[in-house]
Design a protein around this nucleic acid. Structure first.
Lengths: 123, 123
DNA sequence: GCATTGGTTCGACGTATGTCAACATAGATG
DNA sequence: CATCTATGTTGACATACGTCGAACCAATGC
């Protein structure tokens, strides 16, 4: 049911993060809105990055070690490069724990992008 | 009132667009899924294109004349170039009616992209 | 300390991209 | 037909991007 809000909510802004822009269909984007939102789409606009992001997002707990997702057909420096791009776009965060580096998705960003693409009321 | 499908449908591949992929968080994308979905994100990954797309999508009836949306700060050939990119990505369709050319959004694509970004079940 | 494994950073290279000015095309209008 | 307006296309240019190998840091184990 609607037990989605029962989480401790450690980060107080984790529910309304990235109120960057209204749905694309609501009104024409301003220059600022476009320059804020476009980098997120751009980051997902490469097949390798999309696979890396999907691999992290679909992994247990939305978190994955680089070693678990690095098999995407390009060299390891290239994987690192793409993960950095995803980090810079705000879609992923990274953390080193001992030997390995773990990447996790920023759930609020996913929700915000989904809201951007919400279809208009097809009444 | 569901007369949306009464159009002649000149291009046969414009109707079944984008049952392309599951949500990004469901499982790691395959190479094919990534190469299908990435171009759509890529097309929205430029600020000018994002503004053009939003301008069309938010216009009355999801349709707009080029002359109504061309004021985005770049030259007219550049606008035309970006609209072509959005067309090639399957996000927009164009149609000439008399003097003006009208662009409209492909609603199914919007829905498909929104589904891609659906957040995981936080149960 | 030294070797090993995991991951990032650094150059370098070829290709793609965004942009414009100039030209071309399509309808409308005289 | 001539001309004007609205879009699209072409060619050129600077910049950004994706990719790799090599060099470099970070933790672990000998």
């Amino acid at each position: 049911m609607s037990n989605i809000e029962l989480l401790p909510m450690a980060e107080p802004d984790s529910s309304d993060v990235a109120p960057c822009c209204p749905p694309l269909t609501e009104r024409p984007f301003t220059v600022e809105e476009a320059e804020t939102a476009a980098p997120m789409f751009k980051a997902l606009g490469d097949p390798v990055r999309l696979r890396l992001f999907s691999a992290v997002a679909s992994h247990e707990g939305g978190e994955a070690c680089v070693c678990d997702i690095a098999d995407v057909g390009v060299s390891q420096p290239t994987v690192s490069h793409h993960l950095k791009k995803l980090r810079e776009a705000g879609l992923l965060t990274s953390e080193r724990r001992g030997t390995w580096v773990y990447y996790r998705v920023e759930p609020s960003v996913l929700a915000a992008m989904g809201r951007l693409l919400a279809p208009p009321h097809t009444s």
